[in-house]
Design a protein around this nucleic acid. Structure first.
Lengths: 129, 129
DNA sequence: CTGCTACCTGGATCGCGCTCCAGGTCAAGG
DNA sequence: CCTTGACCTGGAGCGCGATCCAGGTAGCAG
């Protein structure tokens, strides 16, 4: 127990096998276990770390930033403050991103409303040939 | 008046000169005016169309979707219904995107809170060498 | 007319984040 | 044992959305 094969981890995290290997390659994952035959196995901790990566990735954090975070985590507890700062900065970026989306969405709404009135006008003028 | 040089349009829309040319090339812009010498000039309509493109792009619409929209717009008023439908679908996608971001942001908040408590604990235990 | 900047074209290149492939090895069920 | 499917490695390739470049022309201020 507490060991997962690459395939199981792919299923649980939604990352592809290739992505898992890629993440290890570029240093987002480290100290991934290996069987005597060279096959990877993941621990519960690895899986929850992947959960964090997924969350950061899905909120648009670039890989080099995730890499910084991973390196801080690797160092140990003396980097807790730096890590929380990085997350807080990212949180602000996410907030900003949402605000931007809302603003642009408002423009889309205006455009949609304009289309509706245009369509209504067209209907009234009897254009249906 | 009512004519803008590529450089002016770049300034006003925030798209680079290269991007303007690229958008024309791939069919997001059409019937862009040319001087006798072959230099482009943009009308007020072109600029506002670019405003729409910017809005769609910034909310994550892929180019091939923008292209569909552009083609519908090119056809004329009989595609109004299709265009509004496309925008409404995109609007739902944006809504979804925001919801996703909020969900993931909540996880980030949890993580941040966890870090703060961890840091507090570490402070209490007097680790400051 | 001269200079100078803005603009032109076609095509190559980039950065990101994977994704795919060939050619092989491992490991578990029958 | 043997098969079969999951996994391994190194490296090439992809899709998107631009971005850059070389070598040349337009067009305006002085």
């Amino acid at each position: 127990m507490e060991h997962y094969s690459p395939g199981q981890v792919a299923d649980r995290t939604g990352f592809s096998l290739d992505t898992l290997r890629y993440y290890e390659l570029i240093g987002l994952l480290s100290d991934i276990g290996r069987t005597s035959g060279g096959h990877r196995f993941f621990t519960e901790d690895d899986v929850s770390w992947l959960g964090i990566l997924r969350c950061l990735r899905d909120t648009g954090m670039p890989i080099n930033r995730m890499h910084t975070y991973a390196e801080l985590a690797r160092v140990g507890s003396e980097t807790l403050a730096e890590r929380v700062e990085l997350l807080e900065e990212h949180d602000r970026a996410v907030e900003e991103q949402i605000a931007q989306l809302r603003t642009q969405q408002a423009h889309i709404h205006e455009k949609i409303a304009w289309y509706h009135s245009e369509i209504a006008t067209q209907a009234r003028s009897g254009v249906d040939f």
